[in-house]
Design a protein around this nucleic acid. Structure first.
Lengths: 204, 204
DNA sequence: GTCTATAATTCGATAGAC
DNA sequence: GTCTATCGAATTATAGAC
């Protein structure tokens, strides 16, 4: 047996987490039934409560895991003191598009939760006090970029990167756009979004 | 009595629709209970089923109403033969921001539904065969705008306009950004988004 | 049309055997 | 740790009186 466990070698706890992650992110909290999680995990309903006391506790674990990953990409970007503005934007766009290609349900899942139960993410504070923010202000002062509310810069980068994954079912239905075409479109945007942001920052 | 009915003068059917619209868009299908709708409407639970046979039928009415409004803004824009490219963009951004200011829950509500039950919206076909599309292709041929996949243009306009409302709970928590500040930011974007799109279309 | 009462089902959670 | 069986609450929907 290799040290790397096969899928069937997962512990019961891991099997439940895997099943819960799949169903919660796919269908949301209310629409996901504990019976379905148990079935998907190949175990019994009672065992789910034995390991995780309640549906809500299990959900919180999955949600924090998702919120964490989601926020991490932004934190990594805005606090990096070794990259230029343009490099930061490229890094964030690349990381998000790669992540959301693997986990396309994540953004809607996270946004739904933040709406119903606002968290202390303090996105705005984190951004306003970040190294990225300082770089922007310096570039503005030097006249290298146009005068602009920094919130708009961050909002635009994230909008252009994430929204297409949220709107995917709208543009890509009935095979009008194949999965492969959508994938290619997103890969193409990795290079285009930084260029567009650059054009925006230099517009008068 | 004026011909315009007061809120308390609504028919029972209207009272139920109003309550259902509020709760469904706010909390989604599963989390909304028929009892709560009845309570919100000030009527009895049995009466809800008397008028609308089932929870699902009632939901479909509310959902189609929302999807319709959502799509209408795009249809109005891409099929208008009397406006320039820039005027079209300004119109769409203005209409969406005004609509979502009134109905901030709409985008998440609609996106959640389209994901779970893909509709025959054929957004891509409608766009690809539209008058707006023809204008873009002409402008590209004349070299007035840069060479770009038209899907990206539409995707960017909609992303920049709608995503901030979806991400609202993330940027605006714990009074870090007041409702008024958020409102002002969105109003400001009415003028900025068309400028940014313009810069994007002229970038090399 | 509107109500009260309740049927029928579903769901989260637990008891208790192994 | 894992299972079967079941409880108790919640929820959608309906029956039947007025």
């Amino acid at each position: 047996m290799t040290p790397k466990a096969k899928k069937t070698d997962l512990t019961t706890e891991q099997k439940i987490i895997h099943a819960a992650r799949k169903l919660f992110t796919m269908k949301g909290y209310e629409a996901t039934k504990t019976r379905d999680i148990a079935k998907e995990a190949g175990i019994n309903l009672a065992l789910l409560n034995y390991y995780f006391r309640s549906k809500e506790k299990l959900f919180e674990i999955i949600m924090q895991e998702n919120v964490g990953q989601f926020m991490q990409v932004i934190s990594d970007m805005v606090n990096n003191e070794n990259t230029s503005i343009n490099e930061k934007i490229e890094l964030l766009v690349n990381n998000y598009i790669d992540m959301l290609t693997r986990l396309p349900d994540m953004p809607l899942f996270v946004m739904n939760h933040l709406k119903s139960t606002p968290q202390r993410t303090e996105m705005r504070e984190r951004f306003m006090g970040s190294y990225f923010m300082k770089q922007i202000q310096q570039a503005m002062k030097k006249g290298e970029i146009t005068t602009i509310n920094p919130m708009n810069i961050m909002m635009n980068i994230v909008s252009l990167t994430i929204f297409p994954f949220i709107a995917k079912p709208m543009v890509q239905n009935n095979h009008s756009l194949s999965s492969e075409q959508f994938y290619n479109l997103m890969q193409e945007r990795k290079k285009l979004i930084p260029k567009w942001i650059d054009a925006m920052l230099k517009s008068k």
